[in-house]
Design a binder for these strands. Structure first.
Lengths: 338, 338
DNA sequence: TAGTTAATTGTAATCGATTGCACGAATCTA
DNA sequence: TAGATTCGTGCAATCGATTACAATTAACTA
């Protein structure tokens, strides 16, 4: 006894047409109050639920948006998704999630699947391994709004929401300088991603602006894991003039750095300051709470959703918006000397 | 120049019927090889993409499943979602996510919205504040499979995937006893949720089985945050015979416990052992890595997906499956005396 | 009272894809 | 060569809801 009621069932029960039922349910003013009331009541009684699929097919709007991220259980991304969901749910949108596992082929797959599913828009963070852009243009050709958050590629017509990574790098470095550090190293990530380049640029400029020397040897590109932190410390401490601080583009790498420094008996923050990046939950809970850059993922998600909403409203005009959010430096124990 | 191609467009271009195009695209054997090839080529050329909405309406299967959790950015839940997504994506399903913020009304809302969206199933973790069950029966009346993971309510016809919380509580407590602890306290959560009751029961039984006295004063029900950990320690240490170990039902509470103990100069694990629950990422990264119970969320997600898949297959038979996964005790520094 | 007008409701097309049934043509059988 | 198959396509209904347009009825005007 599966109860799947359609407007036709209601119509039959009341001896009217489906059209009448539809109008009554939608509060169409052309329907008499009596009929409307009757329809409403029977609908409730029969436990009617509008079939959004039929509506979507008719209207061309599915009220679904696709969100593509590398992994949904990475805090940064799940927080962004949270922001997106909370912004869009009240407007009747649902969020469909996809993971790329950082693979370009999965990204292409996901996009195609979402287009097939007739999503009203796609919000995504580009995979690390993505080199092509044709699949993005594909989306635009279908008039489906596309928004990049955090990680982006240069594609005409795509709006982006990012944080000011340059500023983040600059501020973090400046803070270290103000703490009295003068030999500041930087652990970067894969330069295929703009974000890492920008953090690096901010770092470099901050050094120069404060009269410090820029030293090539102090910049290391690494993977984003703990082990990379250990290895980097090893490398840096082997230099003739080892650094006295590290600005890392990853909290995980920074964690490895801290572990390695402690193992070697180097005191933090007295002898060595450390700043990470992302404000991963664990940074706050460490014995020595870790300074880091908060990327405000929930806000980033909300903003991405807002940008998407603007796109669907002005469907005719192709607006290409570039929103840059200000990062927030979280100064904690690992970089607070006094 | 939005290119939204339908089978009718292809049909027109080739001077055939939409039926023919449909059959060709679906590799229907009744179509001639020549026509099939022609259709395939033109479809590719015209950048045709199947409209899954139309298909869903026709077939009654949307190939979407809804997943409802309190918050998607809680690691435990996002990891479950990851498991679900990775299990279902290869089969053509998409995952729609909803958040309840632990509110019953939102839960009801979400369920209705998902039913309207014609999802093929709903996988969820019940909100802490949920008391009713009628909205669950609603789902079943529509013949939509419903699966509870981790947090469940007793509803006939609903399959569940949980871990053995009793066993988890038992094992954690037993481990503490084996480490030489004899006055073990337990910090529990809201007993409206079975999981907390079960962990408590396991704890209690382990004490009794090992000839230890069960002490009411050693059991405190708290919220699941850091502050609760601090306060609980305060309370427990004020007892005439304070405990020498704590098994907490929450990693966050356990973190607060550890912070408070350290503040008071109590050595861990020498004087006091601590075990948390959930294997939150931060537990591993602490100075003193925290012992905890891993709930295997990714596996739980995958298993939930599998249970759902069984349900849709045997649509006629109403199977009510109860899967119980074995928890995994992660023994780390905070409970390792030797 | 004939003719208008307004108020309701019905008719039927539409969104895009699928599929049972029917039909024409080509091939085969005896 | 007449009759039976087989093959490839077309026709039209269907999924559920919406919505121009048409039609009916009642009420109103002059």
């Amino acid at each position: 006894m599966s109860e799947k009621t359609t407007i036709y069932d209601i119509a039959k029960a009341l001896n009217v047409t489906a059209a009448t039922v539809s109008r009554a349910l939608n509060n169409n003013p052309k329907i008499s109050a009596a009929t409307r009331k009757l329809v409403m009541e029977t609908a409730a009684k029969m436990n009617y639920k509008q079939n959004k699929l039929a509506l979507a097919l008719k209207s061309g709007k599915s009220n679904n948006v696709g969100v593509i991220v590398p992994y949904i259980d990475r805090n940064f991304f799940s927080a962004i998704i949270r922001g997106i969901e909370e912004e869009l749910y009240p407007l009747g949108y649902h969020v469909i999630i996809c993971q790329t596992h950082e693979e370009e082929s999965a990204e292409v797959d996901n996009i195609n699947a979402l287009l097939n599913a007739q999503v009203d828009g796609i919000l995504m963070s580009v995979s690390k391994l993505t080199t092509q852009t044709s699949h993005f243009e594909h989306v635009l050709n279908k008039d489906v709004p596309l928004v990049f958050f955090d990680r982006k590629k240069d594609v005409k017509g795509v709006s982006t929401v990012t944080i000011d990574d340059y500023q983040a790098g600059y501020n973090a470095t400046k803070h270290l300088i103000e703490q009295g550090c003068s030999k500041i190293a930087h652990l970067s990530g894969d330069w295929a991603l703009e974000i890492y380049q920008n953090r690096y640029k901010g770092y470099k400029q901050a050094l120069l602006d404060h009269g410090l020397e820029f030293n090539e040897d102090y910049v290391i590109k690494t993977k984003s894991d703990i082990k990379a932190g250990h290895k980097s410390v090893e490398t840096l401490l082997a230099l003739d003039t080892p650094p006295d601080a590290i600005f890392s583009s990853s909290d995980y790498v920074a964690l490895g750095v801290i572990q390695e420094l402690k193992k070697r008996g180097i005191r933090i923050p007295e002898d060595f300051c450390v700043i990470g990046f992302s404000n991963e939950p664990f940074t706050k809970f460490m014995e020595l709470s870790m300074s880091t850059v908060d990327q405000l993922p929930v806000e980033m998600g909300k903003m991405s959703a807002k940008v998407f909403l603007e796109q669907v409203k002005e469907s005719s005009v192709k607006i290409e918006k570039k929103v840059v959010l200000a990062p927030s430096l979280k100064i904690r124990a690992t970089s607070t000397k006094k």
